[in-house]
């Protein structure tokens, strides 16, 4: 299901969380990057039909999310993993998935159980299917979260920072799993972790302060730092201009990588930027400090 958003606004009291968002999301896996408070969660909650917009238009698969009927139509084909999803501690994994499956309208008992079994295998929780959710680790909870999102074979999957707080291996497993399911659906992934987007998405958007400041192929983000990424080796203080992205201490001096539109130091040499450096360059343009 493709998503078409235009002029989307959402206000909470005096805070304007979304200030006119325009975005088109085609099928496949799509990354949503942005600073804390940029409005990613607000946008995703609107897409999930949890929040109503204050203004603007959102069409998902042709359904208008500002109407009740449109929201219901989208929700029937939606998988949503909210940021900070809480699970009922006194249910087992199996029971929790069964509950959510029923609420999604999977009324056929046999089909629902089979699907739950398949998903438990897929996320590697089959062994603990009968255990109460109470004692689950962060990674296990996130896997239950993605399993519930995939119940009912949704056409649109919205996942809000699913990899935050996971150890590197778990994070890689998780994002690979997400990429694996994106073949025949739209998966919208929000994250702070640029690397997750680099490894899994062809297309991405970047949000800052309630607006979309970039949308396009992920390589387009890298291009923003083209000709503006430098390496400086010095034994003195770090370069005063630009944003230091990395600093590695070595015997001959500290190697700094700096994003700066101008040469930050006479000794600086231009280097090929990474996605993270592209992101930093983009953020400097979007929200000048």
């Amino acid at each position: 299901m493709d998503i078409m958003i235009s002029g989307l606004r959402r206000r909470f009291g005096r805070v304007e969380a979304l200030r006119g968002v325009d975005l088109e999301v085609p099928g496949g896996m799509f990354g949503l990057l942005g600073t804390n408070g940029a409005g990613k969660t607000t946008l995703m909650r609107i897409l999930a039909g949890v929040l109503s917009p204050t203004g603007g238009r959102v069409l998902v698969g042709g359904h208008d999310l500002t109407t009740r009927a449109g929201r219901l139509a989208v929700q029937r084909r939606l998988g949503y993993l909210p940021q900070d999803l809480g699970l009922y501690p006194d249910l087992t994994t199996q029971e929790f998935l069964d509950y959510i499956g029923l609420l999604k309208g999977l009324d056929d008992d046999t089909a629902r159980r089979r699907q739950i079994g398949e998903l438990l295998d897929m996320v590697g929780l089959a062994d603990v299917a009968g255990r109460r959710l109470k004692g689950f680790s962060g990674g296990m909870r996130r896997r239950v979260g993605i399993a519930q999102a995939l119940l009912g074979d949704p056409a649109l999957v919205v996942v809000d920072e699913p990899t935050a707080g996971l150890d590197p291996e778990e994070r890689i497993r998780f994002r690979t799993l997400l990429a694996g399911i994106a073949g025949h659906r739209t998966v919208l992934l929000s994250t702070h972790i640029v690397e997750d987007v680099a490894q899994t998405c062809q297309e991405a958007a970047v949000m800052a302060a309630g607006r979309v400041v970039f949308t396009g192929p992920v390589t387009g983000i890298i291009d923003r730092a083209q000709g503006a990424t430098w390496e400086v080796v010095t034994q003195g203080p770090p370069p005063a201009t630009g944003v230091v992205v990395s600093a590695v201490g070595r015997p001959g001096g500290t190697h700094y990588r700096v994003v700066s539109p101008t040469r930050p130091d006479p000794a600086a040499v231009p280097v090929q930027p990474s996605l993270e450096e592209g992101y930093v360059a983009l953020m400097r343009e979007a929200v000048p400090s």
Binding site: A48, G49, V50, Q75, L78, Y80, P82, L85, G86, G105
Partner: peptide, 14 residues
């Protein structure tokens, strides 16, 4: 709301 299940429940077609 306290547990953090409210958003998920609100996103379901129920």
């Amino acid at each position: 709301h306290r547990i953090g299940a409210a958003s998920l429940l609100a996103s379901l077609p129920t």
